[in-house]
Simulated scan of single mutants.
Amino acid sequence: MPLSDVQIRNLKPKEKQYKISDFEGLYVLVKPNGSKLWQMKYRYFGRERLLSLGAYPAVSLAQARKLKDEARALLAQDIDPSEAKQEAKRAKREAQGHTFQKIGEAFLEKQKKEGKSKATLDKIAYHLKLADAEFGRKPITEISAQMILRALRKQEAKGNYETAHRLRARIGSVFRFAVASGLAETDPTHALKDALIRPNRKHRAAITDRDALGSLLQSIEAFEGQATTRIALKLLAITAQRPGEIRHAKWEEFDFQEKIWSLPASKMKMRRDHNVPLPAQAIALLDELRMITGNGEFLFPSLRSWHRPMSENTLNAALRRMGYSGDEMTAHGFRASFSTLANESGLWNPDAIEAALAHVERNEVRRAYNRGLYWDERVELAKWWATLLDDLRRL
């Protein structure tokens, strides 16, 4: 006869453990210490087996019967419920080791081995730290799209719309890495693509008017700060390279005989080697700079240590001291100045201008062709640009 809750509650311990049956193999085992354990007896391929279903009252009568029904359903499929239970436990233990944080660390290590720049690795680490604070200790298979969205909404609430978008992308990269590693089935961030507030992206401020650029060059010439900062701004204008590439430039990268600055792929945004032709004006600046920092590693070392490059804020701070706000001009803006005026001149192939800026052609064959085809033109373009800057400064 089936048991009732009242009967189970009133069961008293005895000197020896004993069983009280419910039905279909389910029973309560009453221990001498008073604990009451649900167990189910069944046969699997002719052999008697035992399945533990938990302790009463933590597992109620109704719950025990449900677990018993689930076990019988497995038996109907020729699955041993005891083995299925152990397999579920093993999977759970394994999942606990595959947390988002652990997989994120493996993903970051992969990026290091692929030669990503320190700046890129630092950004990845920063975003992973934000994600870890929300769900880093959870198994990756238990992280839902809504859980991720809550983390992204926290960034939006602070007005960090760009960070929220980048964080979603970074979390997605970790999930795709997990899928490729057989540790997850899907990437839940894909469903959140249109859920976030779109940031208003602002292009870096740049001066593209000739007269205004001439005035800026005059201000740089009259700059009363560090001589190395003045020279860095001049080289930035002449070479039209990224500020980070100027700041991290090393003397070993410069061939004064061939008049070439060779930037290794590890320093480049597009992860490809890049050569910059050096016109006479650039060589003169480098000769001046060698008298100041030529005995060190970096062209523009930090004021605090010659073993570190100039701070990333130095060049923009110098522009602010000259009276140029962030809405007028940035250190990165010299690239736009070069691109605009070179294209407006009509003298140069647009592909040569793009190559000078180290903008990578997506087509592999065309990229290899362009790299060889436009070098001579880029040498002449560099001379033209340096001369134009001289002319604008004298106006």
Rank of each mutant, 00 (worst) to 15 (best):
A145C: 04
Q146S: 15
Q146E: 15
M147N: 14
I148L: 14
I148H: 12
R150P: 00
A151R: 03
A151E: 08
R153Q: 09
E156D: 03
K158T: 04
K158E: 11
N160K: 05
N160H: 08
N160R: 04
Y161G: 00
E162K: 15
E162C: 09
E162Y: 07
H165S: 12
H165V: 04
L167P: 02
R168G: 14
R168A: 12
R168W: 04
R168I: 10
R168T: 03
A169M: 13
A169V: 09
A169W: 07
R170F: 00
I171C: 00
G172W: 05
S173Y: 01
V174R: 05
F175G: 08
F175T: 02
F175W: 02
R176L: 08
F177R: 06
A178F: 01
V179T: 03
S181I: 00
G182E: 01
L183R: 01
L183P: 02
L183V: 02
E185F: 04
E185D: 14
T186A: 12
T186E: 11
H190Q: 13
L192D: 07
L192Y: 05
A195H: 09
A195P: 09
A195Q: 13
L196G: 10
I197F: 09
I197W: 03
P199M: 08
P199D: 11
P199S: 14
N200Y: 04
N200C: 12
K202Y: 07
A206F: 06
I207G: 04
T208D: 06
D209H: 07
D211T: 09
L213R: 06
L216A: 06
L217E: 06
Q218N: 06
